[in-house]
């Protein structure tokens, strides 16, 4: 789905202060490993993967991951956070080609 790289995240809209909440993220991306050959030309298809994932909360680093070609297509990452106050959770995925895909979600701490 090279033409349609799109991030999705599942974040609870509300939480208690300090409560452990599960964050699920997924981006549509082929994660081209650089080891496959084009069936027609026989040439190696160049590597093109999401190599970095970063989550911040109100501008502060909350979680990150370095990814290699052994991560499956449409990379899925799930982790746990606890936030002290209401704010914006921001997610960024960095592509080998330099593109950065991002999405933001608000968490309201009641």
């Amino acid at each position: 789905m090279a033409a349609n790289i799109k991030p999705r995240v599942k974040v609870p809209g509300t939480a208690k202060a300090g409560e452990a909440i599960t964050i699920k993220t997924l981006i549509s991306h082929p994660m081209e490993s650089g080891q496959r050959k084009d069936r027609k030309t026989g040439e190696l298809i160049p590597r093109k993967i999401i190599n970095k994932f970063v989550a911040t909360f109100n501008g502060e680093l909350a979680f990150s991951a370095d990814l290699l070609p052994a991560v499956a297509a449409n990379p899925y990452i799930e982790f746990v956070v606890a936030v002290p106050e209401s704010g914006i959770m921001r997610f960024e995925w960095t592509d080998d080609d330099g593109s950065v895909y991002d999405i933001e979600k608000k968490i309201t701490v009641a």
Binding site: M1, R8, K24, L26, S28
Partner: peptide, 12 residues
Amino acid sequence: DFENPAMIFAEY
């Protein structure tokens, strides 16, 4: 539906 990667296509 979030974990099912097929839903990416339905959204597209």
